[in-house]
Simulated assay, not measured.
Amino acid sequence: MRESPENRRERLRQQELKNNKASNIGDGFNRAQAGALQDLVGALGWKGTGILIIVLIVGFIVYSILFN
């Protein structure tokens, strides 16, 4: 049975965290403070990420037009 890309990504991330204990403290603190982009993108998938990028671009354009 093939595992999904999300599951594989999470499994590899967990292995890396287990193997690299020294950087876990800083990574955990930073992730708890601001969240992690790979977690957001992994949860959304490629369609959700594309929609998020389009919304950000359109929002920037609208903001530029209204406040210039």
Rank of each mutant, 00 (worst) to 15 (best):
residue 46 W to S: 10
residue 31 R to P: 01
residue 38 Q to I: 03
residue 39 D to I: 05
residue 66 L to A: 13
residue 63 Y to P: 01
residue 30 N to A: 15
residue 34 A to Y: 07
residue 20 N to T: 12
residue 47 K to H: 02
residue 50 G to C: 11
residue 47 K to P: 01
residue 20 N to G: 03
residue 54 I to A: 15
residue 3 E to V: 04
residue 53 I to G: 08
residue 24 N to A: 14
residue 36 A to W: 01
residue 51 I to W: 07
residue 48 G to T: 05
residue 37 L to G: 03
residue 17 L to G: 06
residue 5 P to A: 15
residue 13 R to H: 12
residue 27 D to L: 07
residue 61 I to C: 13
residue 40 L to I: 13
residue 36 A to G: 11
residue 68 N to K: 06
residue 7 N to I: 04
residue 49 T to C: 08
residue 33 Q to V: 13
residue 27 D to Q: 12
residue 16 E to K: 07
residue 18 K to C: 03
residue 6 E to L: 09
residue 41 V to R: 00
residue 59 G to C: 05
residue 7 N to R: 09
residue 29 F to D: 06
residue 35 G to P: 00
residue 26 G to E: 06
residue 54 I to C: 10
residue 5 P to W: 15
residue 9 R to E: 09
residue 12 L to N: 08
residue 58 V to A: 15
residue 31 R to L: 09
residue 55 V to H: 03
residue 65 I to T: 08
residue 43 A to T: 12
residue 4 S to R: 06
residue 23 S to K: 12
residue 19 N to H: 11
residue 40 L to P: 00
residue 55 V to C: 13
residue 61 I to P: 02
residue 48 G to C: 07
residue 44 L to A: 11
residue 32 A to P: 00
residue 27 D to N: 13
residue 38 Q to K: 06
residue 59 G to A: 05
residue 66 L to R: 06
residue 18 K to I: 09
residue 39 D to Q: 13
residue 54 I to H: 00
residue 36 A to I: 02
residue 22 A to M: 09
residue 58 V to M: 14
residue 62 V to Q: 11
residue 59 G to F: 03
residue 10 E to R: 10
residue 2 R to Q: 06
residue 22 A to H: 05
residue 50 G to N: 09
residue 35 G to I: 03
residue 30 N to L: 15
residue 19 N to I: 01
residue 62 V to F: 14
residue 30 N to G: 09
residue 55 V to W: 10
residue 2 R to M: 05
residue 11 R to I: 12
residue 38 Q to S: 15
residue 55 V to E: 10
residue 36 A to R: 07
residue 4 S to F: 02
residue 34 A to W: 03
residue 25 I to Y: 05
residue 16 E to D: 13
residue 55 V to K: 05
residue 27 D to R: 07
residue 8 R to D: 09
residue 52 L to F: 10
residue 66 L to N: 03
residue 58 V to N: 09
residue 64 S to W: 10
residue 8 R to C: 03
residue 59 G to K: 04
residue 17 L to Y: 08
residue 1 M to Q: 07
residue 61 I to K: 03
residue 41 V to P: 00
residue 8 R to M: 11
residue 52 L to R: 08
residue 8 R to L: 14
residue 47 K to S: 03
residue 19 N to V: 02
residue 67 F to N: 06
residue 64 S to V: 08
residue 8 R to E: 12
residue 54 I to P: 01
residue 54 I to F: 10
residue 53 I to H: 06
residue 57 I to F: 09
residue 18 K to D: 14
residue 41 V to E: 02
residue 38 Q to C: 07
residue 28 G to V: 04
residue 8 R to N: 08
residue 13 R to E: 11
residue 27 D to W: 00
residue 63 Y to E: 04
residue 65 I to H: 02
residue 61 I to H: 05
residue 23 S to P: 02
residue 31 R to G: 11
residue 44 L to F: 05
residue 25 I to T: 14
residue 40 L to H: 04
residue 41 V to M: 09
residue 6 E to S: 11
residue 66 L to P: 01
residue 63 Y to Q: 06
residue 27 D to S: 13
residue 28 G to T: 12
residue 24 N to R: 15
residue 62 V to C: 11
residue 15 Q to F: 04
residue 47 K to D: 01
residue 57 I to C: 07
residue 55 V to Y: 08
residue 54 I to M: 11
residue 19 N to W: 05
residue 1 M to K: 07
residue 39 D to K: 12
residue 59 G to P: 00
